[in-house]
Design a binder for these strands. Structure first.
Lengths: 129, 129
DNA sequence: ACAAGTACTTACCTCAAAGTGTGTACAAAC
DNA sequence: GTTTGTACACACTTTGAGGTAAGTACTTGT
């Protein structure tokens, strides 16, 4: 009996955490590496599945549909399939999804600024190496 | 020989992706479940390690320091340790880190809106049980 | 004398996330 | 008649994120 560690159940306080931490709420929705990237590609309007694939070359097909399905289940994107062959499927941001635009644009703004700062730093290091 | 799939190296085009997708850049910095949550806790000013622990009950100690170290390495937070015993360590947002505030606040705004919409929907379902 | 708090570190293990590689139904294009 | 493109689905394997548990060094409080 050397002092028991009572971290209790993990999932329980994860839900509690979501209750009082808005960022946790967001992370449980659009967390993960790919979801924000997919959503970002959709803010300029609907895209076909294959367009998304080409727009995000580093994603595998499996990851792409998997997250598209999840985003659809979470009511962030809307899937529309025309019953033609070859298939014609478009993905669009839902209302909720569109309201994420400020988050995305804030991210983009930060990325631009931050990568420029980094570039500046490298400028002064050209003699090195 | 049935059509070879040349997905080539994965990491290579991941870096390429970062070059032309700002959201990817952000995700490689503050992606993962915990980093945004930690950063969010720091926008109200410096916090001690133990304060962060208490503020985010659902995080394990391992995850907390692990991500704090990474955030420090990525120059998003600054660690300051007073050489006293018991240890007194504070974490502060760096310049870059502070510039993430708009991203966080946009997330919070969305979370509030979105959870309210959800709540509204549940209101009309009270009879359903 | 012993527990508790502080800020970690280390080792081990698990499970879910992600990658790899195939298959499919159908049509148009070459 | 073989290839190409579309929008996936499925099985298998691997990676790594994260959880669990314990220890450390030193001090203050009871």
């Amino acid at each position: 009996m050397t002092a028991i560690k009572e971290s209790s159940t993990q999932n329980m306080n994860k839900n509690i955490a979501e209750m009082h931490c808005p960022v946790t709420y967001v992370m449980n929705r659009i967390g993960g590496h790919w979801k924000p990237i997919i959503l970002y590609q959709l803010i300029n309007g609907p895209k076909r599945y294959s367009e998304l694939k080409r727009a995000i070359p580093s994603v595998t097909e499996k990851m792409l549909i998997q997250h598209l399905k999840q985003l659809e289940a979470d009511k962030l994107v809307i899937r529309k399939a025309e019953p033609v062959v070859p298939p014609f499927v478009t993905y669009t941001l839902s209302q909720s999804g569109e309201e994420l635009t400020p988050v995305m644009t804030a991210m983009v703004a930060w990325a631009i600024r931050d990568s420029e700062v980094l570039a500046k730093k490298f400028e002064g290091m050209e003699e090195m190496n």
